[in-house]
Amino acid sequence: MENMPEQNQKKNNTGYTKYILVWFTLIILTGLTVSLAGMDLGRITVATALLIASIKSSLVLSVFMHLKSEQKAFKVFVLVALFFIVVSFVLLFSDYSSY
């Protein structure tokens, strides 16, 4: 892969339709999260909002930011970064949950 010219590597990112479909999905998900916020879901309100935000982010990361077609190293990097964010949150709340 390393020795291939840039053009060959990037051919799969040149279609427009894929981006428009992802944008459409993002807008739908925004509508969904706004309408769900209007309902009383009780304890799962925040979890639902964060779940939808995570789905939206993964769409942006994989398609808009081309993570899907990048080399494996990029994906590993992002996963490591996200892993440490999650670890920090878990440690943070294990500390505060006793309050």
Binding site: T30, V34, A49, A53, K56, S57, V60, L61
Partner: peptide, 23 residues
């Protein structure tokens, strides 16, 4: 520049529900 712009978008994706939709 695009990658930076998308990151700014992702941050807003989380800011929006956390500030506007927790009523």
């Amino acid at each position: 520049a695009g990658l930076y712009w998308h990151l700014v978008d992702i941050i807003w994706i989380f800011l929006f529900p956390l500030f506007y939709l927790i009523t």
